[in-house]
Structure formats: C-alpha cells, structure tokens
Amino acid sequence: MGQYGVLVDITKCIGCRGCQVACKNWNDLPATKTTFTASRTNPPQMNFNNVTLVNFHTIEKGDKVQWRAVKMQCFHCLEPICFEACFVHAYKKTPEGAVVYFNPEICTGCRYCQLACPFLNIQLKWDEVFSRVRKCDMCYDRLVRGLKPACVATCPTGALKFGERDALLKEARERIAKNPDKYVDHIFGEKEVGGTSWLYISDVPFEELGFRTDVMHESIPKYTWKYISKAPILAVGLPILFAAFYVYTKRRAENEDGGH
C-alpha cells in the first residue's frame, strides 16, 4: 500500500473556494480581516489562519481569456525539506503521505522550516518571535480514520481527487493522454523536489499559474546531503550549530515559562 495523495485537476476547478472554507471550518481557524483585491483572491497570501488558498489567474492570449483557480497548500513532499531543516524533529512524514507538524511542544519557533520550504507553504505568525508553525497536514486526523481531507470532501466538481499517489499519478497520465490538446504535458509534483503527494494537472502552463517550476527535480534533502558530504566540516559543524541554537532557544523558552 502506497502513500496517499491528492490530484488537482485545474481544468475542473470552478473557483468556488469551498475548500478554503472547509479547511478553516474543520481546523477551527478563525477568519482574518481582508480588503478588496482585484483578482478576488482573498486573503492575498496564505497566513497562519489560512493554510490553503485559492489563487485566481486570468490568462489572456490574443482574443481569448482563460480564468483559472488554483488551490495552494503544502504539497507534502515525498522527502520534505521542512522535516530535514527541523533539528528538533517537530515534523514527520507519515506513512500515509501527509507531512505533519506533529510535535509542537518541542518546536522552538526557529522558522528554518519556513525558510527552507521552496513553495512558501509553511505559515507562522509574524507578530510573534517564536511562533508555532501551522501548515496543511492533509487533515491527518481524518486520514487515519479513513476520511478524505476536508477540502477534498467538499469539492463540488471533483477537481480534487484523493487516493493512493501511484494510482493518481497513473490517472493523471491517462487524463493527459486522453486529451493531449487540452492538457499541458506536465504533472506538477511528479518530479518536483523529488516528488510531492499533491499532484496537479492543467491546461495552462504551470509557470503562468504561479507555480515554481524552477525547483530541482531531485529531493532537496538528498541534494543537500550530496553537497554537505563534500564539505565534512559543514556536515559536522551544522548540527553543532543547530544544537547550540537549540539549547539557547530551549533555555529561553524555559525562562519564559518560569516567568509566567
């Protein structure tokens, strides 16, 4: 049994944003204050209380217009860099596929994970120095009970499809093969950063929909290790540096606790 994932077919998304509300409702996230945006994407970026966001894109080609809505959240990398970047093991790549921030108690709020994520999909509070992390966890609490993530369950048109990643990948290939004129021949998430659990197919090139397609096709941790192994001092030094930082921040946290 393989890992789970979600296939997003952008051609089927009507941009209703049911997923955006479902995510907040299931996870008890409060509404945030927003203002007018011309594209109607709102809030304009993901934040601590919006870990999934539908971005609207208008693509003009001569006389033709296309209007596409793209749901963004953590892509759940197969080899997550946030997991690697975290020196206290607050993250975990679960066997089901979800990348879960499962251990908030030991999180130091160092923001390494946030800086490491090439897709900027990890959210912290900017008004707190040592904020806890919030990110999409694929509704792990639902997943382990046999339920689909809240966003997938609510999707009216089936633009979001939950299943085993291998099967989804196969289906994505089939959909593209069946309609080669419609889809671009690219499954985002198949190879990017070594593969992600969330997969996207589209009729508009991904670059035009705000996807980072310039990321490497090898997993970042692997790549980093290749690099680090060539510089032994770094390989030894980095953990020490992290550990020192860890001790420092931990003490600081304890002191703070004591002060309460």
Binding site: V21, A22, P156
Partner: peptide, 8 residues
C-alpha cells in the same frame, strides 16, 4: 458530501 463556500 460536497459543499460550496456558503454551505461550508
């Protein structure tokens, strides 16, 4: 099982 944003 599906719902739009208003329903949600």
């Amino acid at each position: 099982g599906a719902l739009c944003p208003k329903g949600q």
